[in-house]
Design a protein around this nucleic acid. Structure first.
Lengths: 129, 129, 129, 129
DNA sequence: GTGGTCTAGACCACG
DNA sequence: GTGGTCTAGACCACA
């Protein structure tokens, strides 16, 4: 489900966050679906529950999931979180494209790196905002 | 010449590295041109010389500059470093584009974020990756 | 009658409490009227009877209802409970207004948030919600 | 500076957050002013550094402060965070006023609880958005 | 010395 | 059993 890379400089809780976010955004985890419990995921990944807890906490504050004490954590309806993240990633994208261009990459070479049109989502039809 | 942002979460030495790399890549600093001395730059930016030292060391190990004991640091010819960095950034770019697409961004919206053609601006015409 | 929101961070028993209190305060449930039995309400809301039990117990200790062993729970005359709660909420209200003012909200903007006059509703002529 | 109440049901890190937020919003701590270090505040309040750390972390993610590893934490310029919090508090305020009204409070009695006009800020002049 | 991350283990409220 | 909070103590990168 989620793969950790201990040699990666990124903190573990962020790798967990990214992994879960990917599952959510891609539709592999559907709204209101239950996530694995903090302890269960900690055991599965062989890391401390606090680390998972932190990942869940941040995903919640970012609007990707919601947690109910005593019941578990669940996937949130996708709304504002997506917009916020898209804005964030778009800025990264723009900056990256600019730097690559400064390094001599042509506009065409960048376009060639984009995913082909018409394969948007995974198993859901995505709208184009 | 180089602007530091103390609020940025990126460490200072990396901001220095990025600043210098930008100057080199953009051609503002030309091959074999002498960089400011560690102490001079430290004074100018009002930061610790250790921080500048680290930036220089890493730039050297990445192939952007070379140092001559007792004389200073100089801009390296641009060769392998560029290719390595472009490959790295291209992969980031590809991953970012994929994620944005999964989030519903259209191919057209991404293309719109690319820098306009015809401003590549270097000192050679470089071919695509 | 009572709506539960499982995403709400507030525990279920509190949502039940609030729902019942609202019904009582608004007059929808009249003094000495019988409340649904713990088990009945639990079934209706599809939650654990313990949760309802706890809500009833706390409402009783707060003076909103009274229980008669073997017969059920009933709505208390509204007296001390109201006063206590109003005092509590008033303090919250005062603190909130102060903080909003500190954040730059004008007195007028706060007044604009108050319910319109003329629907106050006391303990005499109350219509249901 | 900050007072903790262990009998309060609110978690300690939230009490710390509120205390600091109050100091920031009131202007007692000015933009770019340095906050006490995590360890220093932990010692002063006689609680675990992790608890302070969490408070700082959340204040940062809410836009009240920014942290620089190795240098400390500082008060952020006040912008979006204020707007978000005011919107949040305004909703609370509206709901509270409604409930008090349902409990029989008159519009006039609520207005009487508002801070007198013309004493807005602390030592800064606050604008009325 | 500073913030940031992680672990280990504990206790609590909730359902 | 679940999430939430807190403690104690450790190690790291950074300046």
């Amino acid at each position: 489900m989620i793969s950790l890379n201990y040699r990666d400089s990124r903190p573990i809780y962020e790798q967990v966050k990214d992994g879960l976010r990917r599952l959510i955004v891609s539709g592999a985890l559907r709204p209101d679906e239950k996530l694995p419990s903090v302890r269960a995921l900690a055991t599965q990944l062989a890391i401390n529950p606090n680390t998972i807890q932190r990942a869940y906490l941040e995903l919640e504050s970012e609007g990707y999931i919601y947690s109910v004490a005593g019941r578990g954590s669940f996937v949130e309806e996708r709304t504002a979180a997506d917009k916020a993240r898209r804005a964030q990633l778009s800025e990264q994208f723009r900056a990256l494209a600019q730097e690559l261009t400064a390094l001599g990459a042509t506009r065409e070479s960048l376009i060639a790196l984009l995913p082909p049109a018409g394969d948007a989502g995974d198993d859901k039809k995505e709208e184009t905002t």
